[in-house]
Amino acid sequence: MRSIWSKDVATAVLIIVLGVAVLLYAQGHYKFGSFRSPGPGLFPVLVSGVLAVVGVGLLIQALMQGTAPEDVRFAWRPFILILGAIAVFAVTYPVTGVAPSVFLMVIISSYSDNKLPLKNKVLLASIVTVIAVVLFTMILGVRLPVIAGVW
């Protein structure tokens, strides 16, 4: 007997949890009103309620079907590094301006694979940074600080 815990079951459970959570939150925070005079809570409650029901349907389906082979692995390394790179951009941009933050973002994200030696990573980051600055601030004329306080 294999575990009933498949990806489909997990998805269904997540959807049920999401639906119920939104429903409770909407009910607790926004006025439901009446059908004659609907409040801001009415539609979210209806939609999240239907979502939870659909989740139950998915759960039944998933349990009926049994387990399918897990084919896709969760790509932890790129997941963390790419999102991390974007986060670093968001944090550094207001302080340093566009150029340094794009440079950093490219360097960090390029660690998602091991195809490039550091020297080439730096080269790649420099090229991408130049493209960003030239395209956005010069060609498109967007007013953004390139290097904060200097340019």
Partner: peptide, 9 residues
């Protein structure tokens, strides 16, 4: 534009 931006900064 560049000159103006420089001036502004």
């Amino acid at each position: 534009k560049i000159v103006a931006a420089l001036a502004a900064c």
